[in-house]
């Protein structure tokens, strides 16, 4: 498990490893779906240095606008 730099959940998992062994790994966060590569700059990989304007609060995710709108039968 890895910490998501964007929403700071601790649930991110490895989704891919470099074909050349040991070069990098790709992680994905199941909470905010953020995806990153281990060798990206710290402004992407480090939760403390990730651009604050692009941080995601997991509590806000259920309120994101549906595009396109869902038909009424799917709205609980």
């Amino acid at each position: 498990m890895h910490t998501c730099p964007r929403c700071e959940s601790k649930k991110a998992e490895v989704v891919s490893k470099s074909p050349v062994e040991g070069a990098w790994e790709v992680y994905m966060c199941p909470v905010c779906i953020f995806t990153w590569r281990s060798i990206e700059p710290e402004t992407i990989t480090n939760p403390e240095k990730y651009n604050r304007a692009f941080k995601v609060n997991p509590a806000d995710i259920p309120f994101a606008e549906n595009v396109p709108a869902l038909p009424a039968k799917y709205i609980k």
Binding site: R6, M28, I33, F34, R37, E40, N51, F54
Partner: peptide, 8 residues
Amino acid sequence: RLNQGDGG
């Protein structure tokens, strides 16, 4: 990734 703020 294309741009720095992209979600993936």
